[in-house]
Design a binder for these strands. Structure first.
Lengths: 161, 161
DNA sequence: CAAATATAGTGGCATATACCAGTAAATTCC
DNA sequence: GGAATTTACTGGTATATGCCACTATATTTG
């Protein structure tokens, strides 16, 4: 009985997708943060700068959606970057509620500088896990982060639960 | 040239293992938090209670290691749970620096109550991703979170970088 | 055994991230 | 066109998580 209990609890930590992802996220957070070296930026911040650059003047709303992040969380996360003048917000011409997010010249430079740091971290990652498994993992995680996944998850609650 | 740039940046956000894991982590965080219902606990807290229960009086150090978490981060994370009297710290008899972490009766009850909530979330997850892919994903993530992975990653920096 | 060093935790500070309650601007509906 | 509603963002509060500096307690060394 007590052993059955242990087994159940063991199965929880071992079988929980959410905590598995979180643990891995902490480990990789450390590793990729280290890769950023003396830049004063975190891996998350580099990632955000890169996404901002990629989306080319997205609104906060659009950026939050792309990052699979709460809008207010994004706002908070942008603050240190704005304070350090790597990012700026420009009011949209058409819709005066919206603010578009873009990199400053300093932000572009910083992002560009760090690309090689990121590449090195990513190279090591793929060396260890293997290019094929890495690609497969990213595909799976991208699906999990997608709206399709969230919808299917919600739908699975209708009938199943 | 500008297109090449776009392509590179696209490749960064699409090919970054760390940000893929983080995005998925945010999505699953939302979903599993929702599953906790009116319990006033987050998914992360349930996960932590479960790990505490599983490890049976581990020291903070041991618990942090199992969670792949910084010791001080664990300390901070435990605070609300201690405040709410779900968890308590007991000084170790032998080593008076160490404090062992255990659930209170209320903590055990809360954890037990939430098992079914977790099971429902996990059931939905596996419905959507498939049991086989889910298991494979957890295996991969467990490896990424392991010390072996961190060591291999460090070693890949010696020769490669 | 006393000094030097290592280990376990704590507290402060900073970022990461979410929810909720506003505020302001746009859109929809009589 | 003006009221009701929706949308985009802001600010407050709370947890999540990491680094660094510091304290207290072991452990190691000479």
């Amino acid at each position: 009985m007590i052993e059955a209990m242990d087994k159940l609890e063991n199965s929880i930590w071992a079988h929980c997708s959410s905590s598995s992802v979180r643990r891995a996220s902490r480990q990789l957070g450390q590793l990729y943060d280290d890769a950023m070296g003396l830049s004063d930026l975190r891996g998350t911040q580099f990632s955000l700068l890169t996404q901002i650059s990629y989306l080319q003047e997205a609104t906060q709303k659009e950026l939050a959606k792309a990052m699979v992040m709460d809008l207010s969380a994004l706002g908070h996360t942008l603050k240190p970057l704005i304070r350090d003048e790597l990012v700026e917000l420009v009011p949209d011409e058409k819709d005066r509620r919206a603010k578009r997010v873009r990199l400053t010249a300093a932000g572009r430079a910083k992002q560009a500088d760090l690309v090689k740091n990121w590449q090195e971290a990513q190279r090591r990652f793929e060396t260890v896990l293997g290019a094929e498994k890495s690609a497969e993992l990213r595909r799976t995680l991208a699906f999990i982060a997608s709206e399709d996944f969230a919808k299917a998850y919600a739908a699975a609650g209708q009938k199943g639960g």
